[in-house]
Computed example of a mutant assay.
Amino acid sequence: MTLTLLFLGPLEDVAGVPEMSLDVAGAATLPDIAERLDPALAVAITAPRVRIALNGQLVAPADVRAGNGDELAFLPPVSGG
């Protein structure tokens, strides 16, 4: 079973790729996912200001339950002016 992770903006730079796939056995939580990533990327995606979208819907980090066929996008804080 495969889960797709999308990294936007500076998170893509940390990840080194715009997206990656993870094999999952069932519903994975954010800590489950983070522990399988490079430590720097795990810290970046779990930062307090990073927003998470599960299949296009914003979710709280504690509500992440992603599994087969799901898409999890990590959205950095918006800046500019």
Results as ranks from 00 to 15, higher is better:
2 T>Q: 11
2 T>K: 13
3 L>D: 04
4 T>W: 06
5 L>R: 05
5 L>P: 06
6 L>S: 05
7 F>R: 11
8 L>G: 00
9 G>T: 12
9 G>S: 06
9 G>V: 05
10 P>A: 15
10 P>M: 13
10 P>Y: 12
10 P>W: 15
11 L>E: 10
14 V>I: 15
14 V>M: 10
15 A>W: 06
15 A>N: 09
16 G>K: 14
17 V>E: 15
18 P>R: 15
18 P>Y: 08
20 M>K: 12
20 M>W: 03
20 M>V: 00
21 S>T: 08
21 S>Q: 14
22 L>N: 03
22 L>A: 07
22 L>I: 01
22 L>S: 02
22 L>H: 05
24 V>F: 09
25 A>Q: 10
26 G>S: 11
28 A>C: 12
28 A>N: 04
28 A>G: 08
29 T>G: 08
29 T>E: 04
29 T>K: 08
29 T>D: 07
30 L>H: 01
30 L>E: 01
31 P>Q: 06
31 P>F: 01
31 P>Y: 01
31 P>V: 05
32 D>S: 08
33 I>C: 14
35 E>C: 10
35 E>T: 14
35 E>L: 11
36 R>S: 11
37 L>T: 09
38 D>N: 13
39 P>L: 13
40 A>T: 14
41 L>P: 07
41 L>V: 07
41 L>M: 09
42 A>N: 10
42 A>S: 09
43 V>H: 06
43 V>N: 11
44 A>R: 13
44 A>G: 12
44 A>H: 12
44 A>L: 08
44 A>T: 13
44 A>K: 08
45 I>T: 03
45 I>Y: 05
45 I>A: 00
46 T>Y: 08
46 T>V: 07
50 V>P: 07
50 V>M: 07
50 V>C: 10
50 V>H: 14
52 I>G: 04
53 A>Q: 14
53 A>C: 08
54 L>P: 02
54 L>W: 00
55 N>C: 00
56 G>W: 04
57 Q>E: 15
57 Q>Y: 04
57 Q>M: 05
58 L>A: 14
59 V>K: 03
60 A>V: 04
60 A>G: 06
61 P>M: 01
61 P>Q: 13
63 D>R: 00
64 V>R: 01
66 A>E: 09
67 G>S: 03
67 G>V: 02
67 G>I: 00
67 G>Y: 04
67 G>C: 05
67 G>N: 03
67 G>L: 02
69 G>N: 06
69 G>F: 01
69 G>W: 01
70 D>Y: 07
70 D>E: 10
71 E>N: 10
71 E>L: 09
72 L>F: 03
72 L>Q: 02
72 L>A: 00
72 L>P: 03
73 A>Y: 02
73 A>C: 04
74 F>I: 11
74 F>W: 14
75 L>R: 08
76 P>C: 10
76 P>R: 02
77 P>T: 08
77 P>S: 02
77 P>E: 13
78 V>S: 12
78 V>Y: 08
79 S>Y: 04
79 S>C: 10
80 G>D: 07
